[in-house]
Design a protein around this nucleic acid. Structure first.
Length: 848
DNA sequence: CGGCGGTACTG
DNA sequence: CAGTACC
DNA sequence: GCCG
């Protein structure tokens, strides 16, 4: 009776773990942890289907348990598994059967323990086992026979349940455990529910493992080995996907790969030792699970620390994980090889060398099966490496020291590269006798002994004629001397081999490519012009009535207007893209709205009436005179005058005046130093500093702060935008912004950092005007009392940028639509006014 | 005519 | 607190 | 230098 209670209690406990999963899933979706939710559901469904089939299996051995109608019974058996009720209901059934049979006759202990129980009915030996048992008992009445059969079946079902539990562990609990652990590591502190799920998973795991290792039937072990492998597949794949989380197909590929290796090595391990004894199987279970759990947990941490799975993958820490994998594999293999075999005919894999997977990831010292794979890299040895690194050994290289992008520093780098590649640099005689790099355009020239040159390095920017003139040659390059670009050198050193022909790192190829580019651009320009003209005609035809700007159109003198560089626009394409963007935005809004209101129940958008934050509109046609604009209603007063001036004359006199104002130029230049703003620039100017060189004077350092000195030192570097891909060899100094926010600030922080600054300001102004405050970590109600701002209440919850737009009641803008120009520079008067009477800064009064 | 974004660091 | 920075 |  006690046993029955225990059985029911543990079944109830099983059920409660399922309930926990449901609660957790609810929480996932509530917090919009979509990845966790999806994966959890996938695992639950997968598990449900597996358990459903298990139910069908049990049904075929123990038919008609729930009803007398066979199809209905099958459906029930499947559904019970699908809804994760399998263990619970089967336990109840087996306990009932057991109690029933016990009440008729107390079974002997031996009948219970010695019975050849089989797995959940899939194994056909059930009836055989029952028969043999009946024979062994012998001489019984039919009633005894029936009772024995009943006992037998109950016991079988009890054993079967153990396997059901085991399967459940593999397909459901372990992946879920990993999921939950991951969610915990990533997003929140441990809560009771997490502790419960972890503890319950561990318990179930132990139970399942016990069920597996206690099993003594040979065929079932084989079957279970298979199930175990499938389970492992799910387990490992799930774990790896978790490590991958949201980004990067690389890690998915990686996950698949190591999963395959794991399966192969485990298959080898299991099949070689289908041992019947607890003591043989336990070490494997012990070895396998802890190691892999460590691997997964550490992998998750790593992902969290590096921000993305790909970054984590590229980090050196991964080595540690690989080492764990190695240890795990090595221990498994050692066990597989050296433990005694009980069943030689099942031991399928004796030659480890035949499984390529086993050769992967192991240290050379770890295994004896180091066959052909290990030999290959060793065979090549160090000589190959040397050869590869000295691709220019013995070559005499001439560096062409001219070109718009060739500096002394760059030449030195080339020389260094050539040296590293084992080549020697040919020195040439300057006619002028100077060793300085001649500037392009200056008619210096060099004489070169071309027979002593094996190859030439020249900038791709360098024109052919200029080079020929420089070397006093009729044509450049001279015959039989190959010319390469500096990128070719960089490639050799990086890749340690010759680039493929399609890389086009030969100088002439680069020239040709540039030429081709020019022609192409030209053609595109013409095409664009044609399209623009066409459009123009359409516009003219459609908008006679809107031409209210006639008075500004006496443009007989507009011929000398400097035209802006032509823009080639494929109007059809642009329209298509705009349409797609619009659809994408609407979709995003709808998607996020549901989540936003779930997070902020009862919230009312701040500016429901407001439609748009105005942003720059794109015209698809060229605007070269006022008539190209439908109307100028958006510009009034002085702005309008300026627009007209630009369109009519091609320039803006006020701007020209400023550009030629030396004081302003000096101010702008100095203020572009990182750490120097308008005020400091003015202060410096008034102290007599007029240029960067003035400031570079050593005795000046006292007037600059430490930050400003750094800014001055890397003046140009800090002004250079960081390109997406940087192939340059002498990389500039960079200023990097690293911002760390708690996850709940993500939406606000993303919006802020995406910019633009003007966009941020207009959005914040909008919030401000409506009595709210928007920052990079909150959108909250505020009270502003004579200059003081008082917060009122908590921030609106915005998990994404979109949410902020929803909260403000604004139309969503794609990042590409948040671009405005930065006109930040304070004018003189304003700067003076700000600093009041403290400073005596004087200058041209009319400067703006 | 007053207002113009919100926040953090430095000196 | 002013000045500068970030977007 | 625009806007309310």
């Amino acid at each position: 009776m006690l046993g029955a209670l225990f059985e029911i209690a543990s079944a109830l406990y099983e059920l409660s773990t399922v309930v926990t999963d449901v609660i957790l899933n609810y929480e996932y979706i509530n917090r919009n942890w979509v990845e966790e939710y999806i994966m959890s559901i996938v695992f639950l469904v997968f598990n449900g289907v597996v358990m459903g089939f298990v139910g069908l299996g049990i049904e075929s051995v123990h038919p008609n348990r729930y009803s007398s109608c066979t199809p209905l019974n099958k459906l029930l058996a499947f559904l019970l598994g699908l809804f994760q009720m399998r263990v619970f209901t089967e336990t109840l059934y087996s306990v009932r059967a057991n109690v029933q049979s016990k009440s008729r006759q107390k079974p002997t202990a031996t009948a219970y323990t010695n019975s050849l129980a089989t797995t959940a009915g899939v194994d056909q030996s059930t009836s055989v086992g029952a028969d043999s048992h009946t024979h062994a008992v012998g001489g019984c009445t039919s009633a005894d026979l029936e009772r024995d059969d009943l006992i037998q079946r109950a016991v079988q079902l009890g054993h079967g349940l153990m396997y059901v539990t085991f399967i459940q562990v593999i397909v459901r609990d372990v992946p879920l455990f990993v999921l939950q652990a991951n969610a915990t590591i990533h997003y929140r502190k441990w809560k009771f529910i997490d502790l419960f799920t972890v503890a319950s998973t561990l318990l179930t795991l132990m139970r399942g493992t016990a069920a597996y290792i206690a099993k003594e039937d040979k065929r079932t072990v084989k079957l279970l080995a298979f199930v175990f492998l499938v389970g492992q597949f799910v387990f490992r794949l799930g774990a790896i996907l978790l490590v991958a989380m949201t980004k990067g197909y690389v890690i998915v590929a990686y996950g698949l790969t190591i999963t395959m290796f794991a399966i192969l090595s485990t298959a080898e391990m299991r099949l070689a030792h289908p041992s019947r004894r607890y003591s043989d199987q336990l070490p494997r279970a012990l070895v396998f699970f802890p190691f892999f759990t460590l691997f997964v947990v550490d992998g998750s941490k790593l992902t969290a620390r590096y921000g993305s799975a790909v970054a984590a993958l590229h980090s050196k820490k991964l080595l540690k994980l690989h080492l764990w994998r190695c240890v795990e594999n090595v221990v498994g293999i050692v066990l597989a090889v050296f433990l005694p075999r009980y069943n030689e005919e099942v031991g399928l894999v004796r030659d480890l060398g035949k499984i390529p997977a086993l050769q992967h990831g192991k240290r050379p010292a770890a295994g004896k099966a180091r066959g052909s794979v290990a030999k290959k890299p060793k065979g090549g040895g160090s000589s190959t490496v040397d050869k590869e690194q000295q691709l220019l050994r013995g070559k005499r290289v001439l560096l062409v020291p001219i070109g718009s992008d060739v500096s002394r520093k760059r030449l030195a780098i080339w020389q260094d590269l050539v040296g590293k590649l084992g080549g020697s640099v040919v020195h040439m005689d300057w006619k002028t006798g100077s060793k300085a790099v001649p500037r392009a355009g200056i008619s210096s020239a060099a004489t070169v002994d071309w027979s002593a040159v094996d190859l030439v390095i020249a900038s791709a920017q360098l024109e052919q004629e200029k080079t020929a003139a420089f070397f006093h040659l009729a044509t450049f390059p001279p015959a039989n001397v190959p010319v390469y670009t500096p990128e070719w050198l960089a490639y050799l050193l990086r890749e340690k081999k010759q680039p493929p022909a399609e890389a086009k790192l030969k100088w002439s190829e680069q020239l040709a490519a540039r030429e081709e580019d020019k022609i192409k651009t030209h053609r595109l320009e013409e095409e664009a012009q044609r399209l623009a003209d066409q459009e123009q005609q359409e516009v003219d035809e459609n908008s006679e009535s809107e031409e209210d700007e006639g008075s500004n159109r006496n443009n007989s003198d507009t011929k000398e207007i400097q035209r802006a560089p032509p823009v080639h626009l494929n109007t059809e394409n642009i329209r298509q893209e705009e349409k797609e963007l619009e659809i994408k935005k609407v979709k995003l809004m709808q998607e996020r709205k549901a989540i936003f209101y779930k997070n902020n129940p009862g919230f009312r958008p701040i500016g429901e009436r407001a439609k748009v934050i105005s942003s720059l509109k794109v015209l698809r046609h060229r605007v070269s005179s006022v008539k190209d604009l439908k109307s100028l209603h958006w510009a009034k007063g002085r702005l309008r005058d300026k627009v007209i001036e630009i369109l009519e004359t091609g320039h803006l006199s006020k701007l020209e005046a400023k550009k030629s104002n030396p004081r302003l130029c000096a101010l702008v230049t100095m203020a572009r130093i990182w750490g120097v703003g308008p005020a400091t620039a003015a202060k410096l100017y008034n102290s007599g500093y007029r240029s960067l060189d003035d400031l570079r004077n050593p005795e000046t350092s006292a007037v600059l702060t430490a930050q400003q000195q750094i800014g001055l030192k890397h003046y140009q570097d800090f002004l250079t935008k960081i390109p997406r891909y940087d192939f340059a060899m002498d990389l500039p100094y960079r200023r990097l912004d690293i911002k760390v926010y708690p996850r709940r600030f993500f939406g606000f922080a993303m919006l802020y950092f995406t910019g633009s600054d003007h966009f941020n300001r207009s959005m914040r102004l909008f919030a401000h005007k409506n009595g709210w405050s928007l920052s990079d970590r909150a959108l909250q109600r505020v009270m502003r009392v004579n200059g003081m701002t008082v917060q009122q209440g908590e921030s609106v919850i915005c998990e994404s940028e979109v949410d902020v737009f929803i909260a403000l009641g604004l139309e969503y803008k794609d990042p590409t639509e948040r671009n405005c120009f930065d006109i930040r520079f304070l004018d003189e008067d304003e700067a003076n006014a700000k600093r009041g009477s403290k400073s005596a800064a004087r200058g041209d009064g009319d400067v703006e």
